[in-house]
Structure formats: structure tokens, C-alpha cells
Design a protein around this nucleic acid. Sequence first.
DNA 1: CATCATGTTACTTGTCTTGTTACGATCTGC
DNA 2: GCAGATCGTAACAAGACAAGTAACATGATG
Lengths: 151, 151
Amino acid sequence: MRNDSRLSRMLHVLIHMDKHQHSATSDMIAKMLNTNPVVVRRTMAGLREQGYVRSEKGHGGGWTLVRPLSEITLLDVYRAIGEPHLFAIGPADDQPECLVEQAVNVVLGDAMKEAQALLLRRLDSVTLDKIAADFEAKLTARPATSYSCAS
Amino acid sequence: MRNDSRLSRMLHVLIHMDKHQHSATSDMIAKMLNTNPVVVRRTMAGLREQGYVRSEKGHGGGWTLVRPLSEITLLDVYRAIGEPHLFAIGPADDQPECLVEQAVNVVLGDAMKEAQALLLRRLDSVTLDKIAADFEAKLTARPATSYSCAS
DNA sequence: CATCATGTTACTTGTCTTGTTACGATCTGC
DNA sequence: GCAGATCGTAACAAGACAAGTAACATGATG
């Protein structure tokens, strides 16, 4: 568990959900992600609140995709899961008195802000159906092997 | 302790070391950074191995800057401390069998690689004397207040 | 040789995601 | 309406990793 994999996992799930049109239970999704249902519900709660998926209780319930992949960007998903910290590095002190440290924070902070802006711009420029299309391309390139995790 | 602050701390220290020409003990540096001497030695070990600073034991010993700030970039310091992970996010699985997950990893990985390249480029383009100059500018702008942490 | 200072190891702490257990709420179908 | 499926949520443990801490060895100075 070295990285925060919530964004990666949610992208994975959403594309799979688009492939089977019927609802998927947290249990099925958990098996797909090699985790357990509680983690799935916890992480997907944000997607539900933002209206990208819907969850239904009871017999025959589960999760369904509400909006088409073409209308969801990676940035949308990132925001829906709560915009977790992108960087592992950061300043020692956010509001230092020392002017030297302030100067360090400015230079380092500017560089990080630029990198973050670039990353978010990239996330904003890609919709989920683009990833789905990449998958289809891979699929036709090697149709012999098993193509997907428990889908 | 939310972030890895080693880079930030080392930049801070190196610039201070340039200001007083005599050597600084780990104890003095620790007070400056609000930490303790062991952390200082641990983190600065990389800088010593790369030849940016020198440490001397015994009476009158301590740490001294070996190379001028103009010859040290932020990237140099980042590398000297062991190139710690920059990002807090990442893929759920580095070598997934599922082609969907592979496609997710490619898109996400490309975006992160670009952001990382930009950040490292920025770190490479700034030398420590630039930060020192920023500090001097701040200093002349408000000379009345205390300017520096225990320097 | 006494003292100062670094070098290093081992262990603890703090923080955050993930994993897990437990329990309550709600919906379906018989 | 009862049984079972399924989500919702709270509480807590596990794992990872930087940072904090304590103990002790090593080496240099006077």
C-alpha cells in the first residue's frame, strides 16, 4: 500500500461498469479490484454523491453507471473522490517566520503548483471513453488471451 | 508530518550554511529546523556523499558547505537525498493482467510522467543562489523585523 | 584523557490509505 | 411479513514510511 490508488481504482471500475449494462454489487467490484466490499462502498460514495453512479439496496441491487463515459473526465473522478493529495513532498512549515524558509517555500511551491496544474489539465482533457477505446484497441490487437479481470 | 519535507529542509539548511561561513553543528541545524540532530545527520548524509557538504567530527567540528550555491540546483539536492517519491497517488497494480486496468495505468502514468518531468525540469533550472537572492530581496523590503530563524 | 561532535542502529510516533469486522437500514421475492 | 440480499456506516487493526528519540560507538581536539 505505497500509493493512494483510489483514482486508479475508480477509473477501472467505471469502465467495467459501462461494459456490462446490468448493475454490479460491491462484492463483485471488490473481487475485481482485489479488495473488499466496504472499501468499494467507501470510495464509490463520492461518485454517487456527484451523480456519476447510482447505488440500490436490496435484492438485485448494486451499482449502476448513470452518465455515459464520454461525459466523465478523469478530473471529474478525481474531484468526486475528494481531491486527495497529489504530492508526497511538501514544505516543512506552511507559515514559517524565517525569510529564508519563506523563499524556499515560494520557489518549491511554485514548481509544485505548475506540475499540479499540468497534471490536472491532463486529467481534465481525457474522458473515460478514451480509455475504453484504448482498451478496445488492445483487445483487437491480441484477442486470444483473457482480456479482462472477472468482467 | 503530512509531507516528506526533506527537500524543503535541506534547501533551507544549505542557504543558511552559506550565510555563516563557519561550520554548523547538527545541534544548531536541528534547532533551526525544529527537529533533532539525528534527523539532521540522517538527511544530510546524502548531501555529504554527493560532495555538497562536508562533516567533521570532534571539537570544533560540524557541517560546512563545500560548493558555492550557484553550483547547486534544487534537482541536485533532490537527487542527493535519494530521489524520494514525488507523488502520493499511483496505480493499484503495477503489472495488471486486466487490459482495462492496463489502459488506465497508461493514461494515468503518462499524465504523471509529464507532471514529474515538468517538476524535475523546474528543479533543475533553479540554483540555490537564486533562492538566496530572493531572500535578500525580502530582507531589504522589510528590514525592521527579525529576518531569519536562529541564524 | 575528557569532551565534543558525527555515525549508526534500533525503536517509537504520527499520519494516511487500506483492510476487516460488526451492525443497522432498506429493498425484493416468496 | 419474513428471509435474504445489499448498501451505509462506524470503529478499529494493519501496513507503509517519514520523523522523532535513545543509546552507543567512533573519531578529533585540546
